[in-house]
Amino acid sequence: MMAYMNPGPHYSVNALALSGPSVDLMHQAVPYPSAPRKQRRERTTFTRSQLEELEALFAKTQYPDVYAREEVALKINLPESRVQVWFKNRRAKCRQQRQQQKQQQQPPGGQAKARPAKRKAGTSPRPSTDVCPDPLGISDSYSPPLPGPSGSPTTAVATVSIWSPASESPLPEAQRAGLVASGPSLTSAPYAMTYAPASAFCSSPSAYGSPSSYFSGLDPYLSPMVPQLGGPALSPLSGPSVGPSLAQSPTSLSGQSYGAYSPVDSLEFKDPTGTWKFTYNPMDPLDYKDQSAWKFQIL
């Protein structure tokens, strides 16, 4: 009977010793046993002879290597770790002494450095960015050149030099007046198309007034536009458009034309069986010896 009264063996659950049927240790109110408190290391007290050895090595170098620390530790009968900690504390003490010396050398008012006064946003004049500046400075420094007289040679050079070769001289006033084509001369031969040399188009003023001019072949195509416009036809070669000034309004060009419109200028042929003959000019830059190549039959 006494065997049943004795408590059973101890069981360990999660490293906790349980005594038989008792489960009081598993209750929430019972805390787990805490780790033992780490003991504080005792402070090391250095003797005068030990301090002399350490100070002598510190005077040589503030960062001794492990071999120098072990050698000193053997002399003063201390572990190497204590020597390492002593050098660490000695360097910190040396830095603190240097900072105190710097503070003593500075004057009393030198510690508080005078800061520059901050400028207020409204006091300083700042350039306004509302208006974009002129990058080319046209509004201040540029002045347009004065327009020359209508009959000045410089204007003629600016007008005619675009179309004339570089080897030719500017046309005088008398020749510029001949550039304007007359109405009857352009409409006299509506079906004849003559190819003149390129030099005649640039230099010869008579080429624009003769039936064999460069633009005589364009007349049949330009004249039928007159009834559609409801007024006189516009002429690209009329009046002052080739003269001194090219800047004319469309209203000033509306009254200039080749001449009176005639039914002869239409595109319809009077004789459907007729042929169109292209007159060959020996001055043509295209060297075609066979003139029969310039004739064709309209079917």
Results as ranks from 00 to 15, higher is better:
3 A>V: 13
5 M>G: 00
15 A>F: 11
15 A>M: 15
20 G>I: 11
22 S>V: 10
22 S>Q: 10
23 V>W: 08
24 D>M: 12
26 M>V: 08
30 V>K: 04
31 P>E: 02
32 Y>G: 07
32 Y>C: 05
33 P>K: 05
35 A>L: 11
37 R>Q: 04
38 K>H: 05
39 Q>Y: 15
39 Q>R: 09
40 R>S: 12
43 R>M: 14
44 T>S: 15
46 F>D: 14
48 R>G: 12
51 L>P: 14
59 A>Y: 01
60 K>S: 08
63 Y>R: 13
63 Y>G: 15
66 V>N: 04
70 E>I: 08
71 E>F: 10
79 P>L: 09
81 S>I: 05
84 Q>F: 12
86 W>G: 12
88 K>R: 15
90 R>N: 12
93 K>P: 12
97 Q>Y: 10
97 Q>C: 09
101 Q>D: 12
105 Q>N: 03
106 Q>Y: 09
108 P>H: 06
114 A>W: 01
119 R>Q: 02
120 K>V: 02
120 K>S: 05
121 A>H: 05
121 A>T: 06
124 S>V: 07
126 R>S: 08
131 V>L: 05
135 P>Q: 08
139 S>C: 08
142 Y>K: 10
143 S>G: 06
144 P>T: 04
147 P>T: 05
147 P>Y: 04
149 P>H: 11
150 S>P: 04
151 G>I: 09
151 G>C: 05
154 T>Y: 13
159 T>M: 10
159 T>N: 02
163 W>S: 01
164 S>R: 08
164 S>G: 01
166 A>W: 12
169 S>Y: 07
172 P>K: 10
173 E>K: 14
174 A>Q: 02
176 R>C: 06
179 L>W: 08
179 L>G: 02
181 A>S: 03
182 S>A: 09
186 L>A: 01
190 P>I: 15
190 P>K: 10
191 Y>D: 00
192 A>Y: 12
193 M>W: 09
194 T>K: 06
195 Y>T: 00
199 S>A: 11
199 S>F: 11
202 C>Q: 02
203 S>G: 06
205 P>G: 10
209 G>Q: 05
211 P>W: 15
213 S>P: 08
214 Y>F: 06
221 Y>G: 01
222 L>W: 11
224 P>R: 13
226 V>N: 02
227 P>A: 11
227 P>F: 14
228 Q>G: 07
228 Q>D: 03
231 G>F: 14
237 L>E: 00
237 L>M: 01
242 V>M: 11
242 V>G: 03
244 P>K: 11
245 S>Q: 05
247 A>P: 04
247 A>Y: 11
249 S>M: 13
250 P>N: 07
251 T>P: 05
251 T>R: 09
252 S>R: 12
254 S>M: 10
255 G>A: 09
256 Q>S: 07
261 Y>I: 06
263 P>H: 10
266 S>E: 04
272 P>T: 02
272 P>M: 11
275 T>D: 00
276 W>A: 00
277 K>C: 12
278 F>E: 00
279 T>W: 11
280 Y>L: 13
280 Y>W: 15
281 N>H: 14
283 M>N: 01
284 D>M: 13
287 D>G: 13
287 D>Q: 12
288 Y>Q: 04
293 A>F: 13
293 A>T: 09
297 Q>C: 15
297 Q>E: 08
299 L>H: 00
